[in-house]
Nucleic acid binder design. Sequence first.
DNA 1: TTTGTCAAACCGACCGGTCTGTCTGTATTT
DNA 2: AAATACAGACAGACCGGTCGGTTTGACAAA
Lengths: 203, 203
Amino acid sequence: MNNEARKNSSGEKIVSESLKLFSLKGFNNTSISDILAATKMSKGGFYNHFKSKEELFTAVLSEARRVWRLQNLADVDKEDREIDRLKKILANFRDRYLKDAVHFPGGCVFITLSVELDDQMPHLSSQLSDGFKRTKALLKGYLDRAKEKGEIRSDVSTSHVSEVIFSCILGASVVYGMDKSDSQLDRNIKALIHYLESIESGA
Amino acid sequence: MNNEARKNSSGEKIVSESLKLFSLKGFNNTSISDILAATKMSKGGFYNHFKSKEELFTAVLSEARRVWRLQNLADVDKEDREIDRLKKILANFRDRYLKDAVHFPGGCVFITLSVELDDQMPHLSSQLSDGFKRTKALLKGYLDRAKEKGEIRSDVSTSHVSEVIFSCILGASVVYGMDKSDSQLDRNIKALIHYLESIESGA
DNA sequence: TTTGTCAAACCGACCGGTCTGTCTGTATTT
DNA sequence: AAATACAGACAGACCGGTCGGTTTGACAAA
């Protein structure tokens, strides 16, 4: 069975529909009934694929990470300079990730879930926290290499800058989740790229 | 009856305990039973003060805003320069607001609620969205006046900078809600203040 | 001071409905 | 025939909210 066929299997459909619903309504407020309605399945069918809602959570998170990488890292390696790769990620984040209503109609699912579950279901939210740390490290990696290659000024603290960029991305996601305003998101990312350009060597 | 006495009344206690619970578990996942247990009241007592859970929501939000102003704007007017007032707000945000586990044990309640309710109960989340807009405008006001007074460079876009600062604050709140890491929060705000100093006239 | 009155506050059993998860039975596939 | 997938009735816990009854405290009449 190839991957395309798997995508149409029941299990895959449950995961992709649950991903949408989780991004809209979160984990606890998405009922199994909601998922059954979206997938046109029945209880028996669902519990034949997942032994519990929490097991579904893990599968959904894994799929969400796959989509995240797919969208945010697209074409990044086509850029030559490290700083341009970072800018490409920001542009991807804006155009291919946050605005991707097919996968995430309710906005960034990682934020929705982490905010909901942090004080309530730590065993689930720790999976999210790890992802956030990896993402920040990913950003810092580009900055560190950019600094090594002299693309950004040598007096710049990559640690400080990555903190700012990462927090800004999170903040922009929160705002976009509320307003769904493309223009506001564009302003937000523009300000961030403007900030990045202010630390480049030529600036 | 003075304000101090009112604070101990049942209605006030319901609101303050609900504020804590909402910051921890959100709106839908805080049950009336949770609130009754925290206040040692009964159903009948509760519904004698609020005709519905949504009416409680509005009261809690109003109290949350009061505490927000109290903590974040404390001593701000003691600073002479506008840019220092802004820095004072950031320091308050870090020391007196986010770390204020008495009022907000689960972190910033506005973020918890807005992320939960944005796609689910728009009539409630719009109250939150308005507050976010006002906060961003508040920050931009300090920057605009700082620019007028020559405290920051004339080539700086106050609009861009306020976008970055506001998004960073939101992002920092999301992270702190997850990790409850004081040191991470300190690094975050430090990077932000560092950013502010980079646009000052002397820099 | 004592008593009667009344409204607000409080109590908790109860209601209809929804939640996750189970179980029995049936259809499809191999 | 055996294994797998689907269907949906059902269970038990919990949800927000209602309601009849009880307690409390302020105040007026005696």
